[in-house]
């Protein structure tokens, strides 16, 4: 268990709803859900969700902290915004799903090896380094995230796709030598560090 998690448990005792309201992005909306079920039928990868957004909101109110934060479900969100435009109570469901995923990741309670979790981290690290996403390094990192041999297998499986993109000049093999970046990388690094510090101070 990491420090943040220990501190959150001590702080909120058994009041998981309040924890979500105070620490999860847009978590203060959860209370507004009237359990109508509209969002539950809106997710494109719906049958891969063990707990629909509706269910997650119910579980939060029932204090099921462990089950919610270790759920695989919010990582299935494609950010399609179907739910947001349909919810009769106007809950920003997409943002709450992102917020829950981020919070679970931060407390290290999210499922280990969850592919979207891993890729989201790689993506963020890649972009923060230079200010822009380097698609080649990002794809290579993705293929090799499960180790070297699996990486070779993954890369071979997608080789046709990759070569097609290179031929169409939409994936530049020279990017490995540098590629796109912002000029003021120092400023971006300081800015992100500051934003993280402010958020940590505010949300524990």
């Amino acid at each position: 268990m990491n420090d943040l998690n220990r501190q959150a448990i001590a702080n909120y005792k058994n009041d998981f709803l309040r924890e979500v309201e105070e620490r999860v992005e847009d978590g203060d909306w959860v209370r507004m859900c009237m359990q109508c079920g509209v969002c539950a039928g809106s997710c494109p990868l719906g049958n891969a969700w063990e707990h629909t957004p509706q269910k997650l909101f119910m579980m939060i109110r029932a204090g099921k902290r462990e089950e919610v934060l270790s759920s695989d479900s919010m990582w299935m969100c494609t950010s399609c915004y179907n739910c947001i435009v349909r919810c009769p109570r106007k809950l920003p469901i997409t943002h709450i799903m992102h917020g829950l995923a981020h919070y679970a990741h931060k407390l290290n309670m999210a499922p280990k090896g969850q592919p979207t979790r891993d890729i989201a981290k790689l993506f963020w690290d890649n972009l923060v380094k230079t200010g822009r996403v380097n698609e080649l390094k990002f794809s290579l990192a993705m293929y090799f995230k499960d180790g070297f041999m699996q990486g070779i297998r993954n890369a071979l499986a997608m080789q046709a796709v990759g070569m097609g993109l290179v031929k169409a000049k939409r994936l530049n093999p020279m990017e490995i030598l540098g590629g796109h970046k912002c000029k003021d990388q120092g400023g971006i690094h300081r800015m992100i560090a500051k934003a993280r510090a402010i958020e940590a101070h505010k949300k524990g």
Partner: peptide, 22 residues
């Protein structure tokens, strides 16, 4: 000198304020 927006999966590691700030 524009930078990346963080796209729709930036939330996982990025969180709220860092994403807004980008």
């Amino acid at each position: 000198d524009w930078n990346c927006c963080g796209a729709s999966i930036g939330y996982g590691e990025g969180g709220e304020l860092p994403r807004l700030v980008l």
